[in-house]
Amino acid sequence: MNALAATSRNFRQAARILNLDSKLEKSLLIPFREIKVECTIPKDDGSLVSYIGFRVQHDNARGPMKGGIRYHPEVDPDEVNALAQLMTWKTAVADIPYGGAKGGIGCTPKDLTKIFAHEQTMAWILDEYSKFHGHSPAIVTGKPIDLGGSLGREAATGRGVVYATKALLDEHGKSIKDLTFAIQGFGNVGSWAGRLLHEQGGKVVAVSDITGGVKNPNGLDIPSLLKHKEDTGSLKNFSGGDDMQAEDLLGQECDVLIPCALGGVLNRENAQDVRAKFIIEAANHPTDPEADEILSKKGVIVLPDIYANSGGVTVSYFEWVQNIQGFMWDEEKVNKELKKYMTRAFLNIKNMCQTHNCDLRMGAFTLGVNRVARATMLRGWEA
């Protein structure tokens, strides 16, 4: 099942739980706009190369349609559509005044000579828009600090994952410092989550990324591992742990598994191998519906992506607010507000779980879908 089919299935299940009108349900599922473009650029050798790009604007009932750009050779319309839809429910769960969108370009960034640093890309977008409309810092978020970006934005998604993890563990009478963690994906989100868990006394026992994996049942020294990766470009041959195959990460012995990489990594083939008691979905759509059913039967508690990884878009909202007001916050305030939003959202999800007698994924989906449906009807939608 591809990402769009899985996401739409979760939406329809939430719509049934909420007893939404069938016409409203269909209206909420159909994207507001889909765009496909060809981008032709000159290479360093003078030849031309073309890339296909997609932008899906899913829903704007609650505010401007917000969503990032994915650079990957296998980007396709269904994936971008699914991510745009997930962003609609994610911003609603976080209770920030945005709708959902997503972009994607079918390319391999590492094959290009211009380094695709996230902040640099946002700076280019700001500059291009401002050429025609005057200096407009609020038009895009994730900018460099020098151009109106927010302090705390780089760590925001990983920090939000840790706040979400703490909220879930508190609910079960457990503490980060008493548990073991395995992290799949050690880019921006995974490395920040690992660093912050380590600082709070959590024992990160296994980490993997595209370069390989490393494990230590006594806990990895995350700052040293980050330094090793920076120096060598790889997780392999780290003196503080044993090398492992990256694909073995999902089945590692741990209390909490945090997938931070690609979607669809947990499926019917490997869900049975999971030994963790909790899964925190830091990636977008890492668990397909068949894996969800298997994990549920095993008693594994899954904290869904549309809540768990919403720290990034929440701090993007804070950046937007700062740009509009022309008043910048210090990092302490950014982190304090993020914790407040993440904690409040978890309580709202739990309330929906109790109201509808459902799991955390449906608690999050019913919360998000209900907010978007209410906004749509208040704006004058009629069957």
Rank of each mutant, 00 (worst) to 15 (best):
N335Q: 12
L28V: 10
W124N: 03
V321H: 07
S296P: 02
Q184I: 06
L28W: 06
N218C: 04
F365V: 01
L220T: 11
L266T: 05
C39S: 09
H135Y: 06
T165D: 05
V214A: 02
A6P: 00
E293M: 11
Q245L: 12
C254N: 14
I222R: 09
A92M: 09
F278Q: 05
S27Y: 15
C254I: 00
D146A: 15
N237F: 02
L169Y: 06
L226E: 14
E382F: 14
M362E: 09
L24Y: 09
K177C: 14
L151T: 00
V37K: 13
H72D: 13
K143I: 09
N309L: 04
D21I: 07
P304D: 04
E199F: 00
I176Q: 03
S208F: 02
K333W: 01
H58F: 10
I69S: 08
Y317F: 09
I279P: 01
G201A: 14
L360A: 10
A373Y: 00
Y51A: 13
E199Y: 00
R344F: 08
R159T: 03
Q184W: 03
I125P: 01
P31Y: 09
Q85N: 07
P289M: 13
V300H: 05
G312H: 01
F238P: 12
A345G: 10
Q85F: 15
Q120P: 15
T88L: 08
I279F: 06
G46F: 15
G299D: 08
P289G: 07
K339H: 11
D76N: 15
D292R: 05
I324W: 03
H198C: 08
F238Y: 03
A92R: 05
T141K: 09
G53H: 14
D59P: 02
R195D: 10
I52V: 14
D242G: 02
G173K: 00
R275N: 04
C260V: 07
T113M: 06
T165A: 14
M1C: 08
R344P: 00
R16H: 11
V313I: 15
R361S: 05
T211S: 15
A364W: 01
A61N: 06
I222F: 05
S296I: 05
K297F: 01
N357T: 09
S150L: 11
T314I: 13
K298R: 13
T366Y: 05
Y129C: 11
N309S: 12
A291M: 13
D221Q: 13
H285Y: 14
G219M: 15
E290S: 08
D59E: 12
G311P: 11
G63M: 11
V321L: 15
W329S: 11
W89C: 02
L83T: 02
M122W: 01
H58S: 04
P42R: 07
G190M: 04
K333E: 13
T232N: 15
V369P: 00
F181T: 03
R371N: 13
E319L: 04
S208V: 05
A193C: 12
K203C: 10
M244T: 06
H118N: 10
E337S: 07
G264H: 03
D305S: 10
H198S: 12
D178K: 15
T180D: 10
Q120L: 14
A82K: 03
D45E: 06
H228S: 12
E290G: 04
G100L: 01
S150K: 10
P289D: 13
C260W: 00
G106W: 08
L29V: 02
K110G: 11
